[in-house]
């Protein structure tokens, strides 16, 4: 039933394989402090750390000692390029390129969902292939602009009324069968997705199978937070596909929003839960 999977830390097996095959690339599983702070941030960190140490030395008191310790930690962060807080949150701000495939498996969220729609693969492919249509049923998107044959610019709603934007490119396009895409660096949300249109048994329409992978802004913590606030990625994709079906089959998305109703009382709400 549950098909949203959070890939946790690599298992013992995966760890031994990755460290024996490609020890230099085993980034998140290694115990050595690795660089996850970008160079400009290291400079700021080093200079302010040094200033704190000097100020602390001048004070010759207990608060002064605290400043020396804090300054020392910042200097160390600058010197080694490793930040423990970023490490704990799964953030690596020093990366210089888009997510590698192994990042999706070590840090990403994977969702796969399917729905059957009573239309031909051709009709469904045609609508989906025009990415400008996606915001009609993917409600987390505000807008998608087509840049050229392969590239597009995506704009999504983010918490607190902000928005997140990125470019994406189509990496696989087989007419009436498959479309796959991924975000391009620099993307605030590294993401990749695919949709397949497979004719169902006779009289059963087309099976639409979607996979969607993304690396949330603050690692797995972001997903946990998203879950807490009801932003369940599996459910989101499921509802996206339901709306896609509704649009393709009926031309509209059924709604009851905006209908009249009587007074909704607080006391009544409590009674209603019985």
């Amino acid at each position: 039933m549950v098909s949203a999977t959070v890939y946790g830390q690599p298992t013992a097996d995966q760890k031994s394989t990755s460290s024996s095959d490609q020890p230099s690339q085993a980034r998140s599983s290694t115990r050595e402090p690795y660089i996850n702070v970008p160079s400009n941030e290291r400079w700021v960190s080093g200079l302010s750390g040094a200033a704190l140490v000097l100020a602390g030395l001048k004070m010759r008191s207990i608060p002064g000692a605290v400043l020396i310790l804090a300054g020392g930690a910042m200097t160390r962060r600058a010197w080694t390029g490793h930040c423990n807080v970023y490490g704990a949150l799964g953030i690596n701000r020093a990366q210089g390129e888009g997510a590698a495939p192994e990042d999706y498996s070590s840090k990403g969220i994977h969702v796969s969902q399917a729905i059957t729609i009573d239309k031909s693969p051709e009709e469904l492919y045609r609508y989906w292939r025009d990415f400008q249509n996606l915001p009609r049923f993917m409600f987390y998107l505000d807008d998608v602009q087509i840049l050229d044959d392969k590239r597009s610019h995506w704009k999504a709603k983010a918490p607190a009324g902000m928005s997140v934007e990125w470019d994406a490119e189509i990496i696989n396009d087989q007419p009436n069968e498959t479309i796959a895409w991924r975000s391009l660096y620099p993307a605030s949300v590294d993401s990749a997705g695919s949709v397949r249109f497979v004719a169902g048994p006779p009289g059963r329409g087309t099976e639409v199978r979607v996979t969607f992978d993304y690396i949330p802004p603050a690692g797995k913590a972001g997903w946990v937070i998203a879950k807490l606030f009801g932003k369940d990625p599996e459910m989101e994709v499921r509802e996206d596909l339901r709306r896609f079906k509704q649009i393709m089959e009926t031309g509209e998305i059924p709604t009851a929003q905006g209908q009249p109703h009587g007074r909704r009382g607080v006391i009544g709400s409590i009674m209603a839960s019985n």
């Binding site: 009926t250 031309g251 509209e252 998305i253 059924p254 709604t255 929003q257 905006g258 209908q259 009249p260 109703h261 009587g262 007074r263 009382g265 009544g268 009674m271 209603a272 019985n274």
Partner: peptide, 27 residues
């Protein structure tokens, strides 16, 4: 308009509510 509204167990009331509007093209 007048409408019969559910307000809880064994509690229905006739209330004044806004008139309905068209929300979708096939309404």
């Amino acid at each position: 308009m007048k409408a019969v509204c559910w307000n809880g167990k064994k509690d229905v009331r006739v209330e004044n509510v806004p008139d309905p509007k068209l929300l979708n093209p096939t309404d």
